[in-house]
């Protein structure tokens, strides 16, 4: 008995080691990255850093347009991507194989999820900026970003809908509720914590993404806050990119400070997702 147990215990230990390493290495990378930018950039962060426009003088420059642009962009992206994505998920899961378009959509979503983000940028440039003549505006950026996060929203929403037990749908239908009443009042409330988690993760993706916005022509030096969906704009990651590419040392400090703001915001968003999921699941 002990003879058979020994090699098994060894492989068990090896697997445990691998598993721990898989957790520690990414965490260590994150901590190192944070420590590095904090060391350089933390001293630069004060109130005026948030409320100032970019400037040729590094010590006067701030992230206001980038931050406001990012927030607007994310809100607009969510406004477009959430109804579409959750709607598509409901169609695929709840009306499923009865729906003739389902296989087509399914293949599309799976493919879209694997497309590099720069391609979305080119698509956005071709369709929204040029063909639809929306220009290099906030709305073009948001629509492009919405396309980018859409597959993710669809996939997580479908997963969430799948966790709702079939018996609840039957109970509702047997009470004389229509399919839509069942979805709205039984299925969605049950699936909502999981959908919310996925949505926050998708949004944090949109918050950090840069490449497609560079392609559709977000500005790199903006001295105003966008005043409408058709206004030119910049976002935080592009502002950081702009500072990093300058030769002066003092702008690198600004970049580091910007990175701190970006990273902390994303960590907060992701932490909120985890917290909400835990809390809402316990509440049920």
């Amino acid at each position: 008995m002990t003879q058979g147990a020994r090699p098994r215990r060894r492989s068990e230990r090896a697997f445990l080691f691998l598993a721990v390493a898989a957790v520690v290495i990414p965490l260590a990378c994150l901590v190192l990255l944070l420590a590095d930018v904090l060391q350089v950039g933390l001293g630069r962060i004060d109130l005026s850093f948030f409320t100032s426009f970019p400037s040729r003088k590094a010590e006067l420059a701030g992230i206001l347009p980038g931050l406001v642009g990012s927030v607007y962009l994310v809100l607009l992206t969510a406004a477009v991507a959430l109804p579409l994505g959750i709607g598509a998920a409901i169609y695929l899961e709840e009306y499923g194989s009865g729906a003739r378009l389902a296989p087509l959509i399914e293949v599309n979503v799976a493919n879209l999820a694997g497309v590099p983000s720069i391609i979305y940028g080119l698509l956005g440039l071709g369709v929204f900026v040029r063909a639809l003549e929306l220009g290099r505006s906030l709305i073009s950026g948001a629509l492009t970003m919405a396309l980018l996060v859409l597959p993710m929203v669809v996939v997580v929403s479908r997963e969430a809908l799948r966790t709702v037990p079939h018996s609840l749908r039957e109970a509702s239908l047997a009470l004389g509720a229509t399919r839509w009443q069942t979805i709205r009042r039984v299925v969605l409330p049950s699936a909502y914590p999981a959908i919310l988690t996925g949505v926050i993760l998708a949004i944090s993706r949109a918050f950090g993404e840069t490449a497609p916005l560079v392609v559709i022509g977000a500005l790199t030096y903006v001295t105003f806050v966008p005043d409408g969906v058709d206004a030119p704009f910049t976002v935080l990651p592009i502002q950081i990119f702009n500072w990093v590419s300058r030769p002066q040392e003092s702008f690198l400090v600004n970049a580091a400070a910007g990175i701190v703001v970006l990273l902390v915001t994303m960590l907060l968003l992701n932490a909120t997702a985890v917290y909400l999921r835990e809390r809402l699941q316990k509440a049920r």
Binding site: L168, E170, Q181, S190
Partner: peptide
């Protein structure tokens, strides 16, 4: 009306809300 094999009260609803679920669901 229909009653199923496994009891399936709506998990997010109280006893009272479960009884009223039919009316609530159908508006």
């Amino acid at each position: 009306g229909m009653v199923f094999q496994k009891p399936n009260p709506f998990p997010s609803m109280s006893v009272r809300e479960n009884v009223l679920a039919g009316a609530r669901l159908t508006g």
